[in-house]
Simulated assay, not measured.
Amino acid sequence: MAEIYQRDVNLEDYDPDLLIELYKTMVKIRSFDENLIRLMQEGKVSGFYHSGIGSEGLSAGSITKLLRDEDYIYYNHRGCNQKIAKGVPLSKIYGDFLGTIEGTTKGLGAGIVHSADPSRGVLGQAGTIGSQLSLAVGSAFASQMKGTDQVTIVYFGDGAASRETMHGSLNWAKLYNLPVIYICENNEYAISCHVSETHGVKAHIADWSEGYGIPNCVVDGNDVLLMHEVTKEAIERAKKGRGPTFIEAQTFRHRGHFEGDPYDYIDKAVLQDWKDNRDPIKNFKKQLINSGLTTEDHLINLGKQVEEEILQAIEIAENAPMPERNRIYEGLFA
């Protein structure tokens, strides 16, 4: 059975620059999200969006200062969190939602999250839920064959974890001892269906990996430092040729499955508790201030800088032209 990952975290043991960068990344992810929702409400985004508000610590902790451009990620349904942490320019992501040529797809974004940035190791999200689990073993296998120390991290939700692709991927990863890290973002709901209704294992989703002999654990995904530590250990294990790791990160989304979802299928008191007591940004801010490493004024100013960066990125994306008609034929090989 999967064990709960626990460590005594002392902020004095960390580089202050890392701590501030983790906080800044979380603030940037949330501000991006809030501003994108605003653009949707203004009618400027033609597609749809799955908000990641409430889970910023999971992505920031598992990517910031841990992964290089040459390391690969496959993001999940709320993948803007991971793309931002990996360093994809904000204007590029906004451009994809706005459908302008500033986007990573240069106008083919169609207002949805499906995009990629191979130069930064962001290999995208597959078209069907959970199929990125199969793709992840491919890039990990390629790294192994080339003899590099590149690692692959694949993110997926508790809903995707109930699909058969996960089991095929876990079997392959263990069979070939691949440098791949599985991070299950367990926010308890696959659309409106609770995790207890979609999995045969009743304790933890990470228990599925136990049958394949893959090291695994369950971690508080809203604790950015615990996420950083558990992922760091998994990366080091992969680089040493010791194979895959499965991490179940527990979190909760503050908004519905998609913008427009009334989110009326959850207990309002439970949601309020997550917002009040388990918010990753609020709690980490309190830690930083109480430790004496920074001040509230400094973090407020940092937030203002991030907001300015966000607004500049939106301006760049909005001012970029829409693609010409011939754009649809670029990159078309059949």
Rank of each mutant, 00 (worst) to 15 (best):
G95S: 01
D223M: 08
I37G: 14
V88E: 04
C217N: 12
I300A: 13
P321Q: 07
V230T: 08
A190I: 11
K146F: 05
S162Y: 04
I266M: 10
R68Q: 11
A2S: 13
K83D: 08
A206W: 04
I300S: 11
D264S: 11
L98V: 00
A334G: 15
I20A: 13
A85Y: 09
Y75D: 04
C217F: 13
E330K: 12
H194E: 06
L22W: 13
S139E: 05
I101A: 01
I247V: 11
T198M: 15
Y23Q: 08
N277Y: 04
P323Y: 11
Y182P: 01
S46L: 10
K304L: 14
I101D: 02
A126M: 05
C184D: 09
S31L: 07
A161F: 10
Q250W: 08
K268S: 08
M145Q: 10
G57T: 14
K240P: 03
A140I: 00
Y263I: 10
I316G: 07
E236F: 10
Y189S: 01
E21L: 05
G103V: 09
M227T: 03
Q150F: 05
C80R: 08
K232M: 09
L170Q: 03
Q132F: 00
L90W: 05
E248T: 01
F258V: 12
G130A: 13
H194N: 09
G121Q: 15
M166Y: 06
N35S: 11
G331D: 06
F246G: 02
I289F: 02
K92I: 07
A136H: 00
P321L: 08
A140F: 00
R78V: 13
